[in-house]
């Protein structure tokens, strides 16, 4: 791996001396088929999980408690019922707000942390561990910790009181108005480590010479971040956006364990609703129909992001 090619002459540098840009070279060299390469993963995923999707699709046409030997077929009845179900719409509305807030916060924080820790900040190993650790701790373990922290007599109110901000202290999880922001905070706390790790990896891919060139041209740090680093990690941002849509729709652990979807459905999500309906209430058919709705919404959301990203790619010619 010593002398063959140099990636430094690659595509990222805005220079006219570089070889033909990859976009145009695509047509010239015939590429080998990639099918055998994707097949093992495809078979494992599709083979193992599509049975589950099929089964769920079938169950969604039933009125069934999960054990009775005689389920009743209701056709698309469950879906009709979903469209008129106020809790479903409430859950969707929560999901939309939740996605916008948590995705923005996670992305911004993960990006800034990755940038900061790529620079020569002292004790960066310690910071990395602190940002990363929440990712590895199961929400089930942290739920009581957070309930304690945000309780009326919890550590957060205690801290506020001692900072002279006592007027801000309140029973955070007991009020519909503050329970959702707390759930969002916990989620961001939980997942920033993930976005951080991925951005950190992606920043390693940015051509150092481009950065150096920008600096030589006198570009400021902020300028470099905005005009070189941020576009450079766009692939990661798009992937994270798609994952966040799916993740937001599936949100379950945190609201279920911290607030049980309450108070009064203020933190009900599609994921918690599906769980409540399918397991404790044993409306397996209705739960399956909700799951299929989730699948459709998640795919539509993720595809929308991917399409938008592609359009932008072709506009800017990246």
């Amino acid at each position: 791996m010593t002398s063959t090619t140099s990636p430094k002459t690659g595509a990222r540098r805005p220079s006219s001396t570089a070889p033909p840009s990859p976009g145009r070279s695509r047509g010239r060299v015939a590429r080998p088929s990639g099918l055998p390469w994707i097949l093992p993963a495809f078979i494992l995923v599709v083979g193992l999980l599509y049975f589950c999707i099929g089964e769920t699709g079938y169950l969604s046409t039933l009125d069934w408690d999960g054990t009775s030997p005689t389920p009743t077929s209701v056709g698309l009845g469950n879906y009709e019922q979903i469209l008129q179900d106020p809790i479903f719409w409430q859950a969707i509305w929560h999901t939309v707000i939740f996605f916008i807030v948590t995705f923005t916060a996670q992305t911004a924080l993960g990006f800034v942390f990755a940038a900061l820790l790529h620079s020569k900040v002292k004790l960066s190993a310690v910071y990395k561990v602190i940002v990363f650790t929440p990712v590895v701790i199961a929400p089930a373990t942290m739920a009581p910790v957070f309930r304690q922290m945000f309780a009326a007599d919890g550590q957060l109110n205690w801290t506020l009181d001692h900072l002279g901000l006592g007027f801000l202290s309140q029973p955070w999880l007991a009020q519909s108005s503050t329970a959702m922001p707390v759930i969002m905070f916990i989620t961001v706390w939980n997942f920033t480590g993930l976005t951080f790790v991925l951005y950190y990896a992606a920043m390693g891919q940015i051509d150092p010479e481009t950065l150096e060139a920008a600096r030589t041209d006198g570009a400021s740090n902020i300028r470099t971040l905005v005009s070189i680093v941020w576009p450079g990690v766009r692939g990661t941002t798009v992937a994270l956006g798609m994952l966040s849509v799916i993740g937001a729709l599936k949100t379950f652990d945190v609201p279920y364990l911290v607030t049980i979807g309450g108070p009064n459905y203020a933190t009900e999500f599609l994921g918690t609703y599906i769980y409540r309906i399918s397991i404790p209430s044993a409306h397996v058919g209705y739960g399956a129909a909700l799951s299929i709705m989730l699948l459709i919404l998640a795919l539509v959301g993720a595809i929308a992001i991917a399409v938008r990203a592609n359009r932008k790619d072709s506009e800017t010619g990246v």
Binding site: A41, F42, V45, V46, L49, Y50, F51, C52, I53, E55, T56, M242, L243, I246, L249, K250, F252, G271, I274, Y275, S278, I279, G287, A288, S291, L294, L295, A298, L299, A302
Partner: peptide, 16 residues
């Protein structure tokens, strides 16, 4: 098709 498999909640997957 691969990505679609990511969208089912775990609790629904369990029985199948």
């Amino acid at each position: 098709m691969i990505l679609a498999a990511l969208t089912l909640p775990e609790v629904v997957l369990l029985t199948p």
